[in-house]
Structure formats: C-alpha cells, structure tokens
Amino acid sequence: MAAYDGLFQTLGLSDWCDQNKTDGPMTMAELLAQSGKKSDDTASAEPATSFWDTPFPSLDELNQSCKSIARTRDMTSWVEELFLSVKDTLKFVLDPLTQPLSWALDGSLWLFQALPWFVMIPLLLLVVWAATRSWALIGFVAVSFLFLSFIDHYVPAIQTLSIIFVCTGFCVALGVPIGILMSRSNALQRFAIPVLDMLQTLPTFVYLIPLIFLFSVTESKLYGIAIILYAIVPVIRLTDLGIRLVDRDVIEAADAFGMSTRQKLFGVQIPLALPNIMAGVNQTIMMSLAMVVIASLVSAPGLGVLVLRGIRNLELGVGLVSGLCIVLLAIVLDRVTKASLSRINAAQQH
C-alpha cells in the first residue's frame, strides 16, 4: 500500500497503471523491504501512512502506486541510452573534425620533450622577451624553470605547458571568430550567452563523462576537448564585449570614409578590442591550467598526474610539491600575459 494509491483510483487510472506492469530490476531498498517482510510477518499489516508523512510525489513514489510510471533510475538509463544511440553518429562526425587536435597535442608534446632543456628554456625566455620586453619577468621565468628542473619536475611542467599552449591556441582560433559573430548579431548573442554560462558552471568532471564514451581514453583529443570547452568561454565573452565597446564615433567615422566591413573589422574593431581580447586570452590560459590538472584523470600527462598520484597513494609530499609547481607555472603564465596585455594597453590609450 503506497501513498498515492488513492489518487490513481479516484482518477480512474488503475487499469492503465496495471496494464503494462513491468517489473524492472529490484532496487536495493525493495530487496531489503522484501526480505524484512519474510523474516517478520507481524509487520505485514502496514499501517496507513499518516498525513504528516506524505512523501513528495516523485517518480519513484508514484511508481509504487502505478507501475506504468517510470522510476527515476529508468529515466537516467534513458538518458544514457539516448546518448549511446547518438554516440556512433556523433563520433562519426566529431572524430575526423577533432583529429587535428590530437595531432597538435601529440606533436607539441613530442616537440617540447624532444628539445633538450638547454634549448627549451632559452626558447621560452625568448618568447617572454617578445611578449613583454621586461628583464625582470625574464629573470623570474628563468629562475622558476631552473627551480622546476632542479627538483626534477621539468618534464611534467613542460608537458603541462605544451598542452596549455595548444589548447589556448585552439581557444583563440575558435573563440575570437565566435566572439566577432556574437558582437554582430544580437540574436546569436542571446543564444550563446546561456550556452557559455552553462559551459562555465558545469562541474569540470561532468565534461569528462560523455567524452570518455565518445573517444578512447588513449586519445589525447579527449582531454584536449575537455580543456577547450572549459577554457574557451572567456575569450569568446571578452571578444564580443570588446568589439561592442569600440567607440561608436570611430565606427561612424570608418563608415563615413567608406570602409568595407572587412576593413572596419581588421582595421578598427579588432585593434581597438585587442586589450579586451587579450584579457580574455589571459583568463583562458589560467582556466586551461586549472582544467589540465583535472584532465589528468583521463590520461593528460603533466603535473596533474603527480597530483593524482598524491591523492591516490596518499603521497602527501608528492602531491604538495607538484601542487606548488602548478602554482608557480600559473604565476609565470599570468604575469607574462598580463605584462604583454599592459604593453598593448599602453600602446593604444585614448
């Protein structure tokens, strides 16, 4: 006797309820209740549920009164079946599309590790110089990398960095055009903002679950996609914002002198939105770093693997040291991108 029996009887739905009675697999609770009943016959006269204890009419609760109503576990398995049924088609489309990501990730990982440390570190310093023109920062980056190498964390650090480089590259290559389109069309913006909100708030682990079904765990694009989905949001948002914030007077002047849409985009809008776009890139880099640690769950190499080892084997020291290395890497990336951002800002203040 369940709480909502009366309801279905008064609605006259009893027939419909019993009509396709399917006894799905028993839940653990049912099993326990059943075995309890056998051992203790006195409890079989169930007392009528008091009004105060009326349960919420959830799927499970309704199912007890009316077997035609699906249980919550049926619903989740439908979601699963739905995903599995579209999986093959999705994989057929996505696999070739995302293959370049795998190549890029593997290629860059190979390259970063193939170059010996005494080539790689100066090369990184050269990049820092090109981006910031600041000796202080170069010094800081040099000391950081020498320290990382000294404590034998050079290889995972360089792997993490390589993944971030590739993923940030893809984020910019995809995010900036999407942001530009969004700034052009209010309809697209209205549609895209909830999607971006969702990508940003969805717990990071949730990205991984469907991706594991779609791609094999051995493929590097698995974690690449997870990182890109998570980290692409700020660059899209800030490109859209930056272009929308470009001084309307300047845009009007560009129109008045007969600039074409393309001239306006590349000659006026993108250059003037660049500070905002770069702020987005900075955020994107920081978010890829956050995700690359979690992505170690699905075989992303790098510092995250060490953190994972720390958790799994309760190796406190390993976990803490690699965590500190991640912080160090984060500071390096943040300072370098911020410095290059302020260089751009200084070049075009109004």
Binding site: D247, D249, V250, E252, G267, V268, L272, Q348, Q349
Partner: peptide, 10 residues
C-alpha cells in the same frame, strides 16, 4: 569631420 574627432587611436 566629426565633433569628437573620431580619429583612430591606434
């Protein structure tokens, strides 16, 4: 020619 000049700042 514009009131607020509207030159390209970059």
């Amino acid at each position: 020619v514009f009131q607020k000049f509207a030159l390209l700042p970059h």
